[in-house]
Design a binder for these strands. Sequence first.
DNA 1: AGTTAGCACTCTCCGGGGGCGAGTGCTAAC
DNA 2: GTTAGCACTCGCCCCCGGAGAGTGCTAACT
Lengths: 340, 340
Amino acid sequence: MDLDERKKRILESIIKDYVETAEPVGSRAVVKKHDLKISPATVRNEMADLEEMGFLEQPHTSAGRIPSEQGFRYFVDWMMEKEHLSDNEMEMLQKVLTDNNHEWHEIAQSIGNFLAQATSYTSFVIVPAITLSDFKYIQLVPVDANRALVLMVTEPGVIMHRKIEVPDKVSTEDLDQLSKTFTHVLGGKKPGEVRRSDLSLLRDRLRQKKQIIDRVLDVIDNLLDNSAGEKVVVSGALNILNEPEFKDIEKIKRVLAILEEDERLRHIIPDQINEDVNIRIGKENEVEDIKEMSLVFAGYKTLGEMGKIGLIGPVRMEYWKAAGSVESVRSIVEDVIKRS
Amino acid sequence: MDLDERKKRILESIIKDYVETAEPVGSRAVVKKHDLKISPATVRNEMADLEEMGFLEQPHTSAGRIPSEQGFRYFVDWMMEKEHLSDNEMEMLQKVLTDNNHEWHEIAQSIGNFLAQATSYTSFVIVPAITLSDFKYIQLVPVDANRALVLMVTEPGVIMHRKIEVPDKVSTEDLDQLSKTFTHVLGGKKPGEVRRSDLSLLRDRLRQKKQIIDRVLDVIDNLLDNSAGEKVVVSGALNILNEPEFKDIEKIKRVLAILEEDERLRHIIPDQINEDVNIRIGKENEVEDIKEMSLVFAGYKTLGEMGKIGLIGPVRMEYWKAAGSVESVRSIVEDVIKRS
DNA sequence: AGTTAGCACTCTCCGGGGGCGAGTGCTAAC
DNA sequence: GTTAGCACTCGCCCCCGGAGAGTGCTAACT
């Protein structure tokens, strides 16, 4: 894929202009804005070439040109330099993340908010399923006379809890005893691995406390069902309302509906990704309703599965900024995870 | 406030029609739709009267009438019958709430989702600050060699936790001992009441474990700062996109921006409310950006402060449905709280 | 051979004018 | 007090024409 230097210059000019203004760019504007030493007529010839190659298109005969999706693709692949976050911004994010040693979904929310704010696009953070991490610890804690809390800690330090009812006569010592047994049998296993054999083993060992055990097992089952999946956090969804391409309410509805429903959002990101920043432009996306948007995303390493983080914006996107920001945030997030 | 029977009939017809179609209602339509035994001309006279009284208005000379905000107010105060949820719907909600014995914000989310779905408006659920409930229980649970979990349970059964670092040499027994002391000193107190005196008492008693205590106190401080406020959950925000009065993007942006930011949303609901369903129509609202919307809300009793639950919709709202649904949901929610 | 000026052409955008239809208010009759 | 009839008003929609922006082509220039 080689374009001569001048064509690249022109393509770049058109992309930068179009991304900024959302209007077709004319030959005259290209010359003026970027101080090229050639005439509009020459630019017109070059633009005709670029159009023939598929990098530009004309909304109608007498308008300027806009970059095609293929044009953006060429730019992204061969010409773009990622614009990372400034030191200042990096510090800010780091500060936010170390200040709040809260629950995972608050952290994810902070990251998402930051990314959305920094780029003015819509961000998403996908926190991987806990299913694949190991149980480390199961503790029963009394809450009041006839209720207890089942507290579960898994390997990367994710904490889950549920309340259960217990018979009046159970003492704190009994609960401790139970906790030890649970931890012993289930500790080190992934929730997905815990199955029939372990459970019946437990039942045997603790036959006399059957009622409580059943409740705890119910809770574990319940957790497997309910929070087995990845969690999705979306921020800055309203940013898309600022893009001039979204002046049609139906279009807005379609896109916001996806962003609102975790299940659908999850489907638009590929399952298998690595740590590199990945860009999907418009129709490169497979899901119908997102074919007029672009995605910029990357995976981040956790102790378990890969997490995912990224941006959703119009095809007319500042890819350099988006890709740089995602990359910067990814590296900070991985740092924070490593240190926690 | 007395209108004769015929005027009421006509006002009601116009309101029902207008709410359904979002278009001005003509005299002819009123007669046809509701089988009145009078002619359009008579209706026109009555409508002119109603307009003079301020209950109707004309978008322009040659259009039909639409109800004024005052007209809606009269209807709501004197004529409307609340339309409660069906038995079927009540059961559904009850099932959802008892199935999920999860954390408060999941429950609030379920309630909100249900209300939004049932009415096609945007719902909000405000969960009162935990600040005002009593500490019941503080427990330190070891997580690994040098980390522990601070687990706090407050009276209505709200559970909060944070990780802290502890020195290597601290044993589980030490932690238990600390837990007992914390619980003893702080138990029964509201987080807001816990202050200097208690903390120094703690420090005195447990001088030798100073490091851990400081960490725990930091955590408590942190919780007071971070989760002291009420929590707000919004559902079905996208429903407003379906209302024909929102075809202007700027308007949508203004309203969605409020719904997205908890802080601002909190300000549009009065602080002091009771369990009755309360309706604010259009300009009756004090916050500028919400003056073109209506609110239907009620308080629900918890063990601590009142919680709030309600709907946001256009002025052209099905108040009967909205008020009935809010009332039904409120009663179910209070039931569930009482039983938990 | 590549570059440039000149020019006719195309197409969108915008504002004005006219016809249509819905609904009113008024008047006069019942 | 109610109703039919009718002239009138006003928004909506469509069409038309001019202005402006930008192109493609041709022919001249370097």
